[in-house]
Amino acid sequence: MEITGIITAIIIGIVIGVLGRLVVPGRQRVGVLLTIVVGIVAALIGTFIAAGLGVASTGGVDWIELLIQIGLAAVGVAAVDRAKVRA
């Protein structure tokens, strides 16, 4: 992976993580860096799921892939928040 791919993954991870936090109701006790990590992981997993479903390569913006990624980020942020509460 080239440096531009890494930078792109970080930017997409930030956006996906923030959108995932916005979807989860209430206050989350998850830091910015952890939100970025959750967003990057959600973006990668969402891309693989969308590719498996055959909706990742469309002519324009891949809205279904984006929704999958945001949903996974929301689940990830909520899971990390709950894990921090229990710890």
Rank of each mutant, 00 (worst) to 15 (best):
S57T: 09
L19Q: 04
V80P: 02
V85S: 09
V23E: 09
G71P: 04
A56L: 12
V32M: 15
L44N: 01
G76A: 10
A74W: 14
L34F: 15
A51C: 07
G20C: 10
L67T: 12
I68K: 00
I16Y: 00
E2H: 04
A50V: 09
G26Y: 10
E2P: 00
I49D: 01
I10W: 10
R82D: 08
G5I: 11
T58R: 12
L34G: 06
A79L: 15
A73Q: 06
I64K: 09
G71H: 03
I68Y: 00
L19N: 01
I6S: 12
A78L: 06
I11V: 08
A56D: 13
G5P: 04
I16Q: 01
F48N: 02
G76K: 06
A79C: 09
I49N: 02
A43S: 01
V38P: 00
V55K: 11
I49W: 05
D62G: 06
L22Y: 10
G31T: 13
A56K: 12
G39R: 00
G59F: 09
G54D: 10
V37L: 01
G31L: 12
V85W: 11
R21S: 07
R82T: 13
A56N: 10
G20T: 11
E65F: 13
G71A: 14
V32A: 13
I45D: 03
R86N: 07
I16D: 00
I64V: 13
V41N: 00
I45T: 09
V41L: 05
V15C: 03
A42W: 03
R29C: 13
V23W: 13
A83R: 10
I14Y: 07
R21W: 14
K84S: 15
D62C: 08
G54K: 08
T35I: 14
R21Y: 10
I49M: 05
G59K: 08
I12D: 01
I36D: 03
V23Q: 07
G52Y: 04
I11P: 00
L72Y: 03
A79I: 07
M1D: 01
G59M: 14
V38T: 12
I45V: 13
G46K: 05
G5Y: 14
G39F: 03
G39W: 02
G31W: 15
V55M: 06
T8P: 01
A56F: 12
T58Y: 13
T4Y: 14
V18D: 00
A79Q: 11
I68N: 00
G13D: 07
V38K: 02
G13L: 08
E65Y: 08
V85N: 06
F48D: 03
G31Q: 13
A73S: 03
G20Y: 04
A51R: 03
L53N: 12
I68R: 01
I68Q: 00
G46E: 09
Q28A: 15
R82W: 10
R82F: 11
P25I: 13
G71N: 09
I64Y: 07
M1S: 03
I12E: 04
G13C: 10
L53T: 08
I64D: 01
I12T: 09
D62A: 12
V30F: 09
Q28N: 14
V85Y: 15
L67Q: 02
I11L: 10
L33T: 13
G59A: 06
R86W: 05
G60V: 14
V18R: 02
V18G: 01
W63C: 11
T47K: 04
G46M: 09
R86M: 12
A83Y: 09
G26D: 15
I45S: 05
G17H: 02
L33M: 12
I64H: 04
I6G: 06
I45L: 07
